[in-house]
Amino acid sequence: MAEAAKGRGARSNATGRYEPETLEAFDDGWTGEDAEVAPLRTTLTPERARTIITRNSSPDVGFDRSINPYRGCEHGCIYCYARPAHAFMGLSPGLDFESRLFWKPGAAGLLEQELARPRYVGRHIHIGGNTDPYQPVERELKATRSVLEVLQRFNHPLSIITKSVLIARDADILGAMGREGLASALVSITTLDRKLARAMEPRASTPAKRLEAISRLADAGCPVGVGFAPVIPGLNDHELEAVLEAAAKAGATSAMYVTLRLPLEIKDLFREWLEDARPDRAARVMSLVRQTRGGRDYDPEWSHRMKGEGPVAELIGTRFRAALKRYGLDGPRPALDTSRFRVPADMKKQLDLFDAA
């Protein structure tokens, strides 16, 4: 078992699935005399994107377009469903995903261009559908905030999800848009146990800070929900009710959950982490996970990939619905207003000048 890198979730850095050669670390017997491994540093590379809005046709995600200012995620959540996407960059979904990040410096300008196109129709955009839009470096880069500013100028409806208290920095925008029916937020809280959170999500905000983010967004006027995602049977599922109760007290008005998904490389990365971080319950957790996936590590079928199936999955769903009602999180979610979308006058003038040229 590889030694855990300080502040990182993955225990290894296996080659991406598209690479022609596979590299694998092994113990050569000289560990005791080897020099200490240098700390893993995070690198950030600009990505020159041509577009900023990503479209999808997935029937079970609730939106058909999203914006991701960053690729990779320094939070290091071991279960993150976005990890396999790093293989498209020729990188590992393991430690590379957590330490070799990309960002889109021209995100705001690209977004303005796309929203101003004559045929564009304003519909709900989700921010953070792949990786968290509030990376630690967002404090300086403000890529996500620049996207929010553009959407506010265009009166464009949005939703946003994060595990970071940094979202509270943008409560001025999200609160103002939320009061107008143009924005909603979701804060993901998988556990209230700080020790488990540090092991499972090593660089994400602490559970207490995420509750603080819910409170600050709610106070600002932005409708905010809590995501108990993923539910990991045998590891954090016993906290379902406690997390929803704490979030409701902080100001959340809705909730959602997703049962642990282990597609592609994630299944090996998660098992490796589990055997290292929680060896006493690793076999039990994987057994319960397979019971929600028809005996497999993962079932990708649209109809039940988010919730799973079978008695274990059904019990989680029953408990979740009961907790929604108990803590007042079962009310209708306010619909985002798509009717107010407009291209600002100054943008129209710029486009007229461009057309004239």
Results as ranks from 00 to 15, higher is better:
Asp28Ser: 00
Arg305Trp: 01
Met177Cys: 04
Met200Phe: 15
Lys209Met: 13
Ser215Gly: 03
His126Asn: 09
Thr162Ala: 12
Ile167Ser: 05
Glu74His: 09
Gly295Arg: 07
Gln291Ile: 00
Pro59Lys: 06
Ala335Pro: 02
Leu211Lys: 03
Trp103Arg: 05
Ala82Trp: 14
Ala248Thr: 01
Thr45Met: 03
Ala116Asn: 02
Ser12His: 11
Phe341Tyr: 11
Leu95Tyr: 11
Gly128Tyr: 14
Leu158Pro: 09
Asn56Ser: 07
His304Leu: 14
Pro202Thr: 06
Leu353Gln: 15
Ser58Asn: 10
Pro233Ala: 13
Tyr79Glu: 00
Ile67Trp: 14
Pro69Arg: 02
His156Pro: 13
Ala10Asp: 05
Ala10Val: 12
Thr131Gly: 09
Arg261Ile: 05
Phe102Met: 00
Arg123Ile: 05
Pro233Glu: 10
Ile127Arg: 08
Phe102Lys: 01
Pro69Gln: 03
Arg278Ile: 03
Arg271Met: 02
Asp337Asn: 14
Val343Pro: 12
Glu138Ala: 07
Thr253Ser: 03
Pro332Ser: 00
Ser254Lys: 04
Tyr257Ser: 11
His124Phe: 02
Asp280Asn: 04
Arg41Asp: 04
Trp103Met: 08
Thr338Gly: 02
Ala335Leu: 00
Met177Gln: 04
Ile167Met: 11
Val150Ile: 07
Thr191Glu: 04
Met1Asp: 02
Asp337Tyr: 13
Arg41Lys: 15
Glu239Gly: 02
Pro157Lys: 12
His238Thr: 01
Trp103Ile: 01
Thr206Ile: 06
Glu140Trp: 14
Leu95His: 04
Tyr120Met: 06
Ile232Leu: 04
Ile52Ser: 11
Lys249Asn: 05
Gly106Ser: 10
Ser254Cys: 01
Pro263Ser: 10
Glu314Ala: 14
Phe354Arg: 09
Asp337Leu: 15
Val61Arg: 05
Arg305Thr: 12
Ser303Arg: 04
Glu98Met: 06
